Simulated assay, not measured.
Amino acid sequence: MKIGFIGGGAMAEAIVCGISSQPWIKPQDIYISDHKEKRCNYLHDKYNVNASVGAQSFIKSVDVVILAIKPQSAAKAIDEIKGLVKSDAIVISIIAGMLLTALEKAFPVNPVIRVMPNTPMAVGAGMSAIALGKKAEEVHGSIAEKIFSSAGRVIFVEEKLMDAVSGLSGSGPAFIFVLIDAMSDAGVKAGLKRNAAIQLAAQTVLGSAKMVLETGMHPAQLRDQVTSPGGTTIEGVHVMEQRGVRGAMIDAVTAAVEKSRAMGKK
Score class of each variant (00 low, 15 high):
I66K: 05
S73T: 13
E145Q: 14
K134N: 14
T119K: 10
V139Y: 13
A196H: 12
V109L: 15
D63P: 05
V112E: 07
I81H: 06
P173I: 02
M98Q: 14
G133L: 04
A125G: 08
E138S: 15
N110E: 05
V64A: 09
S128N: 04
A68Q: 02
I66P: 01
K76C: 10
M162Y: 09
A75D: 14
D88V: 03
F156Q: 11
V91L: 11
V188P: 02
G141F: 06
N195T: 14
A144D: 03
I176S: 12
G97P: 03
T119F: 02
G172I: 00
A182N: 12
V65N: 04
D79H: 13
D63W: 08
A125R: 14
I155H: 00
N118A: 10
M116F: 06
L168V: 01
K105Q: 15
V139S: 15
A182M: 05
A129V: 00
F156H: 15
T119H: 04
I155L: 11
V157R: 07
K134T: 13
F148H: 08
V139G: 13
K160Q: 13
D63V: 00
A122L: 13
I69Q: 09
Q72R: 11
V123E: 02
D88S: 15
A129I: 00
V115P: 08
I78M: 14
A186C: 13
V109G: 05
K189N: 12
S61H: 13
S150Y: 06
I78Y: 08
I90T: 06
A190P: 02
V109Y: 12
V65G: 08
V188Y: 03
A186M: 09
A144T: 01
A182G: 12
A164H: 06
D181I: 00
A75P: 01
P108Y: 09
G152R: 08
S128C: 05
K193M: 11
A129K: 03
K86A: 13
K160Y: 11
I130T: 05
E137K: 15
S93I: 00
S128K: 01
S142W: 03
R194K: 15
V115Y: 07
L132H: 04
K76M: 12
I66T: 00
F156T: 08
K60F: 01
K135P: 02
T101M: 08
Q72A: 10
S184M: 02
A197L: 05
A122E: 12
